[in-house]
Design a protein around this nucleic acid. Sequence first.
DNA 1: GTGCTTGTCAACTCAATGGTTGAAAGTGCT
DNA 2: AGCACTTTCAACCATTGAGTTGACAAGCAC
Lengths: 117, 117
Amino acid sequence: MSADSLSRVFAALADPTRRDMVARLSDGDATVNQLAEPYRMSLQAVYKHLRVLEEAGLVTRPPGPQPRAVHLETEVFDRMNDWIERYRSRAERRFSRLDTVLEAMRTDEKPEGEGQQ
Amino acid sequence: MSADSLSRVFAALADPTRRDMVARLSDGDATVNQLAEPYRMSLQAVYKHLRVLEEAGLVTRPPGPQPRAVHLETEVFDRMNDWIERYRSRAERRFSRLDTVLEAMRTDEKPEGEGQQ
DNA sequence: GTGCTTGTCAACTCAATGGTTGAAAGTGCT
DNA sequence: AGCACTTTCAACCATTGAGTTGACAAGCAC
């Protein structure tokens, strides 16, 4: 209940069925029944998965005629990417900086180094 | 236990505490005690979180002197990014193609061809 | 209207998760 | 050896999550 929005997004994608739904929706909108068809689970279960995706903001269901379409929202992907890139780049930048330091140490002096690798 | 590896990664990052750990580890390796310090939970709980991150491949703990360092692995981030980008781009490409079709309909008024690929 | 299909809600089961405490191994230092 | 610190294992509890079945509400066709 208290999960922040990023947690909801990651949690939503932690389930293989939901990732598969997202994958299929990337090919185009679908109704709940179309979505449910390949899975060996009840329609209600699929509907529940849909709710999870919806609450994570990964999917919207614009109102319309009876077979309502499920639509994939790509905006949330950006938020995930931002998070991932932020820390990946930070770690990699730090790593290359450390590399520089180690190299400086080797050329500078101190042949006492513990073989890190 | 039967979760595939992508599921484990997403599930690992679905927890705010674990995301915070990853964020902090992106600033440099840390011992478990250092990692645990800001949280109001038992050390054992932190170890559990660490295990989850470890099994997701997000973190390694190279052997060494007693307070073993926890190290962030950035490689897994690529796998996540691959997945995200794959379906984001697919959806956006489809969207722009649809856009093109719609525009063609408006300007042309008779779109007879659709099988683009 | 009657009926069929689609979509939704609710209650229930069962397994997994996040947290706890307590105890036991390892490891390092003197 | 002995002591302190780090790490892990096990049992337990509360909450969430994925799935089920059953029933109910809308929409569309006849």
